[in-house]
């Protein structure tokens, strides 16, 4: 029964992420004193793109984009059925890398610039999330997400805080909208994609967000199923508001400052949390 619910939830992912991104656009518009689009606007954009034929630069780029979607969708599926978090995270990382390869397979210099910046973003986020996943495993003795302890946020609070800049980087939001900087390098890795292929790459990105937000929300698991859903929805909405606020109040950083920020403060926070947990478990405190 749980498996059927998981598969149903997995099939609804585009709808859920679309509404989340739509909410983000409305909140952003209201912060700028505008009315903003409908909450379904991101889904409409996706459907429009999937319905457009578009042009193809070369076949390998299209193949890599489809491969990225497949890897991200499988990663999201593994996470949702309550299986191994580490596998889901590594598969999702491979999917992100496929988008870089897709961007490097065309000749446009903007696409190459975007691909290199995307690689720097991957360098900034992967070690942090890797350490977060490892610390979750250390705290509950298992990487199987359905076996994790409830309310991990109480034992790993610093890891939760360290995940927020990672989410910003993965959402391509300011101050970390470095790879897709629209006013600087048009749209980076997406520059040569059009029509349906662009839609597929967007969908791959949505599944990637599900993996990242899924790992984040695992910190807030509760034993009571109704309380679990309520807490996760509240956390998700709060995070969307916080991200819109950060996005609207900060300017874009350079890629090296992003790397330095992520690999010192975020990685440091998770390590500090692990050390404290180790000392508590050893009976020092």
């Amino acid at each position: 029964m749980e498996l059927i619910i998981s598969i149903f939830l997995w099939a609804l992912i585009p709808l859920i992420v679309g509404v989340m991104l739509g909410l983000d656009r409305i909140v952003t518009a209201r912060m700028q004193g505008r009315k903003g689009p409908s909450v379904l606007q991101s889904i409409r954009d996706l459907l429009k793109l999937l319905g457009k034929k578009g042009s193809m630069v070369n076949r390998s780029q299209v193949a890599f984009v489809y491969l990225a979607l497949a890897l991200q969708a499988i990663a999201a599926f593994i996470l949702i059925i309550g299986s191994d978090i580490l596998t889901a995270f590594l598969l999702s990382g491979a999917g992100s890398f496929m988008m870089v390869v897709a961007a490097l397979s065309v000749r446009s210099p903007y696409s190459h610039l975007g691909a290199h910046r995307e690689l720097v973003q991957i360098m900034a986020t992967e070690p942090v999330v890797m350490l977060v996943v490892l610390s979750m495993g250390y705290a509950s003795g298992s990487f199987i997400s359905s076996n994790l302890e409830g309310a991990l946020v109480l034992t790993l609070p610093l890891a939760v805080i360290a995940m927020v800049p990672t989410l910003l980087i993965r959402l391509e939001k300011s101050p970390f909208d470095i790879a897709t900087a629209h006013s600087e390098i048009v749209s980076g890795p997406y520059v040569e994609l059009s029509g349906r292929t662009l839609g597929i790459s967007k969908l791959a990105h949505w599944y990637e967000l599900v993996v990242m937000f899924g790992i984040f929300l695992l910190f807030f698991s509760m034993s009571d199923p109704i309380l679990d859903v309520v807490v996760k929805v509240i956390v998700l909405v709060t995070v969307v508001f916080a991200i819109a606020l950060i996005d609207n109040s900060t300017a874009r950083l350079t890629r090296w400052r992003m790397l330095r920020f992520s690999l010192t403060y975020c990685l440091g926070a998770v390590m500090l949390n692990l050390v404290i947990l180790y000392l508590i478990n050893g009976g020092v405190f």
Binding site: R34, V186, S187
Partner: peptide, 12 residues
């Protein structure tokens, strides 16, 4: 943007 229009800098 309330009509769903976005200014894109990219013809593709």
């Amino acid at each position: 943007e309330r009509f769903g229009m976005i200014n894109k800098g990219n013809p593709k």
